[in-house]
């Protein structure tokens, strides 16, 4: 089925459009908006973005496959990015990763069978002085210990609102401040 933006998300796009001299510049912002609505980027989303911006689907596909934040398959309700790069590794990122894998019962790159969590390895997230750290959906959790991690995961499992998603968008806030 063809993908369409909901009216509130269409309004975000309309607000962003005049900020750029070309429509193509909206490729990344629009993909963010679509991903937040759809949960991931599939062929329908790519066709929609291409049509909306007047560019080819190949252009859009090229962008989708280039950037880490665009999910090409379905992800869990929560997405955990665990930083593996040097400063975090020196601070104990391996242990944090093992704890996460054990607690969730999945390896990095996988989603729990109940669809609650996707666990992914991240390259440096600019939190080097406060490692080890994870990004859970759109939020950073820093200076982690296995105990703190337990609390964070339990909390996320209990949370029932869908305002914060694994497929978060950093773009909505640019057009609609204070909504989150």
């Amino acid at each position: 089925m063809a993908f369409e933006l909901t009216p509130d998300r269409k309004a975000i796009l309309d607000e962003l459009l005049p900020r750029y001299p070309t429509k193509q510049a909206l490729t990344i912002p629009l993909l963010h908006i679509c991903q937040e609505q759809n949960g991931h980027i599939n062929e329908d989303v790519i066709a929609f973005v291409a049509k909306t911006l007047g560019i080819s689907t190949a252009d859009v596909q090229g962008v989708v496959t280039f950037y880490t934040l665009f999910m090409q398959k379905k992800v869990g309700r929560n997405v955990i990015w665990v930083c593996r790069t040097l400063s975090c590794e020196l601070a104990g990122a391996r242990e944090i990763t093992h704890c996460l894998e054990k607690k969730l019962g999945v390896h990095c790159g996988e989603t729990t069978t109940d669809g609650e969590f996707t666990l992914l390895k991240a390259e440096c997230l600019a939190a080097c002085a406060s490692g080890p750290m994870i990004q859970l959906n759109d939020r950073y959790y820093e200076n982690l210990t296995p105990e703190k991690l337990d609390e964070i995961i339990d909390e996320a499992r209990k949370r029932r609102d869908d305002k914060v998603k694994g497929a978060f968008s950093p773009v909505g806030i640019l057009a609609n401040p204070g909504s989150k």
Binding site: T22, Q24, P29, L31, H32, D59, G62, F66, Y67, T68
Partner: peptide, 23 residues
Amino acid sequence: HAGAGAYICGEETSLLNSLEGLR
């Protein structure tokens, strides 16, 4: 403008391409 996760976009011309909606 929000990027989408790519270290290389800190390289100035890569950043410009990304800003224009390209890889």
